[in-house]
Simulated assay, not measured.
Amino acid sequence: MDTHSKPPKLMDRVKATLRVKRYSLRTEKTYCYWIRFFIRFHGIRHPAGMGGSEVHAFLEHLAVERHVAAATQNQALNAIVFLYRHVLEQPLGDIGEFSRAKRPRRLPVVLSHEEVIRVLSQLSGPMHLMAALMYGAGLRVTEACRLRVWDIEFERQVLTVRSGKGDKDRTTLLPPSCMVSIQQRIAEAQNLLNRRLENGQVPVTLPHALDRKYPNAGLSLAWQWLFPSSKPCFVPFGKVVLHHIHTSAVQKSVRQAMRAANLPRPGSCHTLRHSFATQLLSRGTDIRTVQELLGHKSVETTQIYTHVLGSGFAGVRSPLE
């Protein structure tokens, strides 16, 4: 009998490497999708036997034949570069010049304060609070879903976003009008925690290796989700844990609320974040402050909102008027 264990399969190696480097589960799923797509595109050939020319052909196919967005093409390229650099540990070779998917310049859809209030009036319970925080604190939908009890500072009226886009932490505004609802969510989190402790101690998911360093952290109130999932789930490491509410559920509720509010143009969860930025700028808030509150790496990203403000930006009026 052969006692030697088989070497791990390629996709198992990809997942293991992503987890060692602490990539998010969402990124893991995305990278695995594009790596499988790349392999299938070249007839199930092993990537170790391919190189720059095959990557070039794949990226050309995405742009020319599938007409993917620029961000999608870049995502596929990042996944393949990760595969060669960190998993196969072999040089990718020269990819050469390939057709770049066009990145259209589009202005974000924003709502007036009155329109946002109409949308919020169509929501209730946790969905209302999450939408209010996306507008009142400039949160992304994933950031709202991932809020924990310890991220809230009532005295300072500060909300901390941990491991946001780019794995960066930042602080932003805690709207006073949301405080009572958040306190109710914390009370509900305590009650839910008590019930879980009585029925088998199902912990919440924790970042990175924190559950190994502090085994009981997932059973403390500070680490509980403000917006937990309705039932526990299995994570890739074989544990049963309580995760936060899924972003798709929030996105669906907000889209339905926007339709019910009879808005003149369609919107999404991100529209609420866009509206947060434009409202602050129209009221004279310094653009650098808005940049920090949004968590933008570059002020150029924040400047896009100055183009949708029209005559309301910094009190500027048309010379014709």
Rank of each mutant, 00 (worst) to 15 (best):
R146C: 09
T306K: 04
G310T: 11
D286L: 06
I287L: 11
P7S: 09
L206N: 00
V235T: 15
M179W: 07
V141Q: 01
Y135W: 13
R140I: 11
R265S: 05
L111Y: 09
R106E: 12
Q201A: 14
A217D: 06
T27F: 02
A187C: 04
H128K: 13
I39W: 07
N262S: 10
A314C: 07
M130S: 08
Q256M: 08
H46C: 03
H113V: 15
N199E: 12
A16H: 14
S311R: 13
R36P: 08
V290E: 08
L280T: 05
M127A: 05
E188C: 07
H243Y: 04
A57W: 14
Y33A: 09
P176S: 00
E198D: 11
Q122H: 10
L294E: 02
Q183I: 00
R22I: 01
A69L: 08
F154M: 06
V119D: 00
S5K: 10
S220W: 06
I287E: 07
E155L: 15
S318W: 05
T289K: 12
P104K: 09
I304P: 04
K297C: 10
L174E: 05
I35M: 11
Y31W: 05
S282Y: 04
D169K: 08
P91K: 05
G164S: 02
H46S: 12
T30Q: 15
L242P: 05
M130K: 01
